[in-house]
Write a protein that binds this DNA or RNA. Structure first.
Lengths: 119, 119
DNA sequence: CTCATTACTTACATTTTTGTATGTACCATA
DNA sequence: TATGGTACATACAAAAATGTAAGTAATGAG
């Protein structure tokens, strides 16, 4: 009982943190081993599942699916299923995700500067 | 043997990804449950360990220490130890971390907009 | 000698994330 | 009937992140 309670309290704290603090919220959305690779894969336009997989050779199907679902439920990626056989599913960035890309560019620039400072 | 090799390969892939891709590098630096809370805690100026802890009531000492070490080794926080008893240790943001804060602000703004889009 | 203060460290447990391997549904084609 | 292509799902395992609880070193105050 106390175990369960503590755990749920921790979880609630985390949720609270994510909700109340928009930076945390934003970073939650772009964190995850493969999220950025997928976002960058889709910057050029919509891609099918298999095409995306080819662009990120190291990713496993399981991880690609999981991360795409996360991106979809977070409103960064739109998923379109065509009722065909074999199935065809296309993924594309949402307008909101497109607005995020210049900020990622800045993060990238900062990262490069910071690397030099650090050497 | 094959286990070990695969594991080390995965790790090397991750390291490679972090090294070659500055966005990933940057996001690695700011990801972690408490990293942002700590950065924001220090935006106002240097703080002692105990003061920082008071500003982030939910954090445990272990986590605060771990994350501060990560921030320090990543060059985002400077740690100064005074040879006193009881010990006094002060933490402050590096110039590089200060340059990061406007980008975090943008992430925050994006997060807020995105929340509204999502509701 | 005992206690308080500060900034930790250490051992261990739990939770979350990521990886591996295999299976599935659909139907057209051979 | 068997095979192939596509986009997954599922069970299980390993690794990484986070949490809990307790201990430590140094020394000045009482």
């Amino acid at each position: 009982m106390s175990k369960t309670k503590e755990t749920s309290t921790n979880f609630e704290n985390k949720q609270l943190l994510i909700q109340c603090c928009s930076e945390v919220y934003a970073i939650e959305m772009i964190s995850g081993q493969w999220i950025l690779s997928i976002l960058y894969g889709l910057v050029g336009g919509k891609l099918r599942y298999g095409e995306l997989r080819k662009r990120i050779p190291e990713i496993t199907e399981r991880m690609l699916t999981l991360q795409l679902r996360k991106l979809e439920s977070n409103g960064l990626v739109k998923r379109t299923v065509y009722a065909e056989v074999p199935p065809r599913v296309e993924y594309e960035l949402t307008p909101s995700a497109l607005k995020l890309t210049p900020i990622l560019k800045q993060l990238k620039d900062w990262g490069e500067q910071h690397k030099e400072v650090m050497e």
